[in-house]
Design a protein around this nucleic acid. Structure first.
Length: 671
RNA sequence: GCCACUGUAGCUCAGGAGGUAGAGCAACUGAUUUGUAAUCAGUAGGUCGGGGGAUCAAAACCCUCCAGUGGCUCCA
């Protein structure tokens, strides 16, 4: 899809159309737009001044994006022909296709096929797609009767200026383009699904119908796309997890709550054991906190006002309680049992804490979005001067962890900051202009009031946020890690770093987070005695390396297609006798291996060898040992690895090799 | 919560212009004793997601609830 074409810059004169600046016949070579002054524009556009441009080929990334955007128009065109009363909203290209949001009655999958058919028909009409410049007034007139378009014209086209529409046959859409020059360029596409999408028009929330599709420059990439989707489905952790017997979802009695079987529990335990070691060698101590707290604590921590909707709440006698959706306040209660001097900090508390969040019914799914999950949580209580060092140390733990779990897979970092335009979405400091009171609040600007004098004249103070952000930024850049800043994505109580992994199928998963928090410790009045004998506020740092055990398990399973590294595998060895004649020898092999600490399963059924191998396949054992006459005589085992290579070897040799592999937590097998 | 699709045996699925359920695999029993992805025969297994309705009659039709899957961030 990202085929690089020869795209030497070409010359263009002011007022000349790009299409005319191309040598004749270029269009057939798959050029659908050009890049001029750092923007992609239509071939029919005229250059504003003398200069250079480069052709954009359909097969390039930019070209494919344009193709998809044009496909969305084609979809909209088909809809207007089939359903004249439909009101179009917007239809952009996405990373792997396109969609269009439309106000219209829901359609069935059969109707979807009809729409696709109509699209093909319109495509074959070979309609030229042309761009027209219209004034704001003309646009209003053209789209009157469509409140969605009217709103966009109002919002995006300044008074007295103009914008553009794109026309293909009798269909016109308000759009800045660019687009492919003709409908018949859109050939290799498919509509994929129907969804409903929330949209606000004139301040009112509306459910629009969203139709998804995808398009590619050629048929083979389109096919490839669906092959990859299928491959992803084959690796679905829900499917593999039930084959490997790792966990159960009981949708009647525990919707959204995973129940771990003995096999799944082994994986969990091994992950926890690994993290425990890493925690301890990095100065993290471990604590245990209860699952239920009085709501007084949640009110104080700020969770009650922000997360109440997602919390499991209940009342007993006169008191309100909540099951914990997070571990942090519990750790604060432990931290504050003492007075601390600056010499005592940082205090680093970790816990494999299971939390419960009431996810809305449409949002739960598998291990990636469960209602209960276990965080490899940790909270550091420290002084501002210690923040950067601590973050560096955590970033190193993260890098080490993912190298162990995934080898060389690519990880990337994101630094999420406050949206300075909309501080009301965050807990920020304010100062009262009237009485000078300083306080932290979160809420709509026009509802904010000074808690002391009731004045509404408040000044936002982002000092804490800026300091926090700077500490994160300088830690991440001191390690030369590639990162991207995303304003507005911060947690409501502080900025954060998120870590992403690209898996074997190229999918991006969010893993670790590090969040800085100036506010929760101040809600609980946490201070330490600084070197001058005064009280200084404690800063809190939330971190999770795995993120959640369930999520990391799901990613591991999908990435390895269930064939986990040996140290994590529930079945490290399955011993299979060729027939029952060798049951005793097999038994001996199995117990010797078990004695050396391996997780071994002996298949003692009386099936044929072929059948036994077929039936145990679903467990994705690290090694399968077949033993029969030959092995019994030679005191050997014939070992078959995950990748189906086979080798006969002495029992002791096998047992040492596998022990070393597990000890080092190798991803690769020794054979 | 909203939209589409789905819910029949432990698993994968068939059936269905309405006449109270089928297959393969798994399980169990017996025979077979097997050399790297299906040996044979037999047995057992289901309130067709729950509830309600029209019907002489519902797994099928209608209503409703529950659950699962994919979406609901990427702006003209």
């Amino acid at each position: 899809m990202t085929t690089r074409m020869d795209s030497k810059p070409l010359k263009i004169k002011k007022g000349q159309k790009f299409v005319d600046a191309l040598a004749p016949g270029y269009l057939k070579d798959g050029i659908i737009a050009v890049k001029y002054q750092n923007k992609t524009v239509d071939l029919q556009m005229e250059a504003k001044e003398n200069g250079e441009f480069t052709p954009v080929y359909l097969k390039s990334e930019d070209g494919t994006r344009i193709l998809r955007h044009s496909s969305a128009h084609l979809l909209a065109h088909a809809i207007t022909e089939l359903y004249p009363s439909a009101l179009l909203n917007a239809g952009p290209a996405t990373d792997d296709g396109f969609f269009y949001d439309i106000e219209m009655p829901p359609v069935s999958t059969e109707q979807l096929a009809e729409i696709e058919k109509k699209m093909r028909e319109i495509s074959s009409r070979k309609l030229p797609i042309t761009r027209k410049v219209l004034s704001k007034e003309q646009l209003y007139r053209m789209f009157e009767g469509n409140p969605y378009k009217i709103q966009k014209i109002r919002d995006y086209v300044p008074d007295g200026t103009s914008s553009t529409v794109y026309e293909q046959g009798n269909f016109t859409d308000f759009c800045t383009g660019p687009h492919v020059p003709s409908t018949d360029i859109i050939k290799h596409f498919r509509l994929t699904s129907i969804a409903s999408a929330l949209y606000k028009v004139n301040g009112e929330q509306k459910h629009l119908l969203r139709i998804y599709g995808t398009a590619f420059p050629d048929e083979s990439s389109l096919k490839q796309y669906f092959v990859l989707k299928e491959e992803a489905q084959k690796r679905d952790h829900r499917k593999i997890g039930s084959e490997m017997d790792l966990y159960v979802f009981d949708s009647e009695n525990a919707p959204g709550f995973p129940l771990y079987t003995p096999n799944g529990t082994i994986i969990r335990d091994k992950l926890i054991e690994y993290m425990r070691g890493l925690n301890s060698s990095n100065g993290w101590t471990e604590v245990a906190t209860p699952h239920v707290f009085r709501d007084t604590m949640w009110k104080r921590s700020g969770h009650y006002s922000k997360y109440r909707e997602d919390m499991y709440l209940f009342n007993l006698d006169e008191d309100g309680y909540a099951i914990k959706p997070m571990n942090c306040p519990g750790h604060i209660l432990i931290f504050r049992r003492n007075m601390y001097s600056y010499r005592d900090l940082p205090v680093k508390l970790s816990e494999f804490g299971t939390v419960y969040r009431y996810e809305k019914s449409g949002e739960v799914g598998g291990l990636t979005r469960p209602r209960s999950f276990t965080i490899d949580d940790g909270h550091a209580f420290l002084a501002l001067s210690q923040v950067e060092n601590e973050i560096v140390s955590i970033l190193k733990m993260i890098a080490e962890t993912f190298k162990t779990l995934f080898g060389g897979l690519e990880i990337s970092y994101e630094l999420s900051l406050i949206d300075e335009e909309h501080p009301e979405n965050f807990l920020v400091g304010y100062e009262c202009a009237d009485c000078g009171e300083k306080f932290d609040l979160r809420g709509a600007v026009d509802q904010l009031k000074c808690p002391k004098c009731g004045s509404t004249k408040l000044r936002v103070n982002l000092d804490k946020w800026n300091e926090a952000s700077e500490a994160l930024r300088s830690a991440i850049s001191s390690l030369n890690l590639p990162y991207k800043e995303t304003p507005g994505d911060a947690a409501f109580y502080g900025p954060k770093i998120s870590v992403y992994l690209k898996d074997a199928l190229g999918r991006k998963w969010q893993l670790s987070t590090i969040q800085l928090d100036f506010f929760m410790p101040s809600n609980f009045g946490l201070t330490y005695v600084d070197s001058s004998g005064g009280k200084s506020p404690v800063i809190m740092l939330h971190r999770a390396v795995f993120g959640s055990i369930e999520r990391i398990m799901a990613i591991l399973i999908e990435n390895y297609s269930g064939k986990l590294p040996t140290w994590l595998s529930p079945y490290q060895v399955i011993v299979v006798p060729v027939s029952e004649h060798y049951a005793d020898y097999a038994q001996g092999v199995a117990s010797a291996l078990k004695k050396s600490g391996l997780r071994v399963y002996l298949d003692s059924t009386s099936e044929t060898l072929n059948k036994k191998l077929r039936l145990i396949r679903r467990f994705r054992a690290a090694y399968i040992c077949v033993v029969g006459e030959k092995e019994q005589e030679n005191n050997t085992v014939t070992v078959r690895s995950r990748s189906d290579t086979m080798k006969e070897m002495r029992q002791s040799e096998f047992s040492e090799a596998i022990a070393a592999e597990i000890e080092k937590r190798n991803i690769e097998q020794f054979m």
